[in-house]
Structures are given as structure tokens and as C-alpha cells.
């Protein structure tokens, strides 16, 4: 029991921190633009694919560094020559633009890389168990994912709260004109934030690709969960996104690890059903099966009790 719990917690943290890498960028970009970027997870997918291709020729480690840079650059260019122009036509146009972009990237990925799942492998260097506990192995690669995510989290926290650039970004989000009057090039700052946000999504893709599989649907799968996270955390709140990322990561991990099912609960209540009952499928449902639905369930619950999300502020 204890080992199940420990491993589920570790895996939940790995997933949660990975989710935060996406959610943090999405949150920052949302704070600037005022709309959700539906293409955000597409940059995550691009990161995985670009890194995969690079790894074929130059190895995993080159891909780890270069792919996020390429994705970030692409993101910055899309902001500069796409979003910034569309911005003048209002929020709906921006939303439609990011929607279109998500489809475009998915199509492009299928066009260049095909529909099949790519054999993107973890590097040999990390192909060993980091430690073994109660006979279970925790792979070095997962430890590596965790290290990178924590590193990014600390760097992000430091830059945003302690550095001059972070102060300028924070202020530019709420008072762009005042910040411009002080001599800061706000559009350039926004382009930079967009670029860094997409680069982080790309980095998440690079490190998640080998374990969560690299296939054309990976953006859709993770994208919806990341949206759930930023809404649960409260739109625009980085701290909220962090808490929600860990919550969802752990929740899913616990659900998968537990093999509690409906029959167990019903038995506890002293109810039992015949195997040939017409609703047998429903009675025998178990927690791992519904794990993918849990984030959405949590979303509904949070929205009922706190419509602004955990740390969101109410709009005036």
C-alpha cells in the first residue's frame, strides 16, 4: 500500500510539474492578450516532433536544447506577424486565429511527420532505474523530467518576481501605457513573453514525448487538461495554475494507481449485483477507468463553488 502511494505521488508530481510548464506559459499569455491561446498545446506537440527529428541526427540532448528554441522563435514570429495584427480586430478574432493555428499545426505535423506514432526514445544515458523501492523502479528519466520542471519553475519564479525584466512584465500586463511612457517597448516585451511561453511548451513536449508518446493527437489530449488547469487555478493566476497543475497531476496518478472500483464501494454499503445484470458495466466501473474524466469533474466542482477559480480575481 505504502509503495503504491509513494510511486503514485512521485508520478503525480512528474505529471503535475510537466503540466505546469504548459499552464504557466498559457497563463502569462492569457494575462497579456486577454484571450486563451488555443494553439498553446500545439507548440508542445511541435516541440516533441522537432526534438524527435533532431534526435535522429544529432541525438536527444541536442534536440532538448534546440527544439524549444525553434518552437519559441516560431511562437515569437506568430505573435509578431499574426496575433498582433489580429489583435486590432478584437478578442473574437484572436480566439478564432488561435483555433485556426491549432488546426494548422496539427495538419502540418501530419503532413511532415505522418499519422503514425513516432518511436521517440528516452536517451540511453538515462535508461536506468534511479532507485528501487519495495521492488519497484523509478526510472532515471522521470527523475530527469522532474529536475527540469523544478528548474524551470524556480527560474520562472525568480525572473518574474525578482528581476527587473519580471517587474516590467508584471507591470506591462496591467498598465501597458504607463510602462510604455517609462520608456519600455511593450510590444517587444509581449513578443518575448509569447516566445518564452511557447518555448516552455516546446520544452515540455521534448521531455514528455518519449514517455507520453509522440503522435498527432498529443496536443488535443494535453491541451484540454491544460485549459482545465488554468480555469481551475483562476485565469491569469500563476500561483493558481501551479496548485491546479499539481492537483490534477496527483489526482490522476492516484486514481490510476488505486484499483478501487464500484463493486468495492457497493459491497461496503452491503449492496451486490448479479453478474448478468443489464447495468453490469456501470456497477463494475473502477477508478482507473474514470481517471481521464477526473480533471473535468474537478473543473465542474470548482466552478460551482468558486466561479473565478481557486486564486482567480473577479472581473470588475
Amino acid at each position: 500500500m505504502l509503495e503504491v502511494f509513494i510511486f503514485a505521488t512521485l508520478n503525480g508530481l512528474v505529471t503535475g510539474l510537466l503540466l505546469f510548464m504548459l499552464a504557466s506559459g498559457l497563463t502569462l499569455i492569457f494575462s497579456m492578450m486577454g484571450v486563451l491561446n488555443f494553439a498553446h498545446a500545439s507548440f508542445y506537440m511541435l516541440g516533441a516532433y522537432v526534438a524527435y527529428s533532431i534526435s535522429l541526427y544529432f541525438g536527444f540532448w541536442t534536440g532538448l536544447i534546440v527544439a524549444p528554441l525553434i518552437v519559441g522563435l516560431l511562437g515569437a514570429l506568430i505573435e509578431r506577424y499574426g496575433l498582433r495584427r489580429v489583435h486590432q480586430s478584437g478578442h473574437v478574432a484572436e480566439l478564432v486565429f488561435t483555433f485556426g493555428l491549432a488546426f494548422l499545426i496539427e495538419e502540418a505535423v501530419q503532413f511532415f511527420w505522418g499519422r503514425d506514432t513516432k518511436n521517440y526514445q528516452t536517451p540511453d544515458l538515462l535508461d536506468f532505474p534511479l532507485f528501487t523501492l519495495f521492488g519497484q523502479e523509478f526510472s532515471a528519466y522521470r527523475g530527469f523530467m522532474m529536475t527540469i520542471s523544478i528548474g524551470i519553475f524556480i527560474a520562472l519564479y525568480y525572473v518574474l518576481t525578482k528581476s527587473r525584466v519580471g517587474i516590467i512584465i508584471q507591470a506591462a500586463i496591467t498598465h501597458p501605457q504607463t510602462v510604455a511612457n517609462l520608456g519600455h517597448n511593450v510590444p517587444l516585451i509581449f513578443m518575448g513573453v509569447f516566445g518564452v511561453g511557447t518555448a516552455l511548451a516546446g520544452l515540455a513536449g521534448v521531455i514528455a514525448g518519449p514517455v507520453l508518446t509522440t503522435f498527432p493527437g498529443m496536443a488535443t489530449v494535453l491541451g484540454s487538461i491544460v485549459f482545465v488547469i488554468v480555469v481551475i487555478g483562476g485565469l491569469g493566476s500563476l500561483a493558481g495554475a501551479f496548485i491546479a497543475s499539481l492537483m490534477i497531476g496527483l489526482l490522476q496518478s492516484y486514481a490510476i494507481a488505486s484499483d478501487v472500483g464500484m463493486p468495492d464501494l457497493l459491497n461496503l454499503l452491503g449492496i451486490s449485483f448479479a453478474r448478468d445484470h443489464p447495468l453490469n458495466d456501470l456497477w463494475t466501473i473502477n477508478l482507473p477507468q474514470i481517471a481521464p474524466v477526473l480533471p473535468f469533474l474537478l473543473l465542474v466542482l470548482v466552478l460551482i463553488f468558486r466561479p473565478t477559480g481557486l486564486l482567480g480575481k473577479r472581473e470588475e
Binding site: A180, L182, G183, H184, N185
Partner: peptide
């Protein structure tokens, strides 16, 4: 000119 340029 843009505000930030004028400030500069």
C-alpha cells in the same frame, strides 16, 4: 513617434 521612443 511611439511613447517608449519619446521616453528614450
Amino acid at each position: 513617434k511611439k511613447s517608449f521612443e519619446i521616453a528614450h
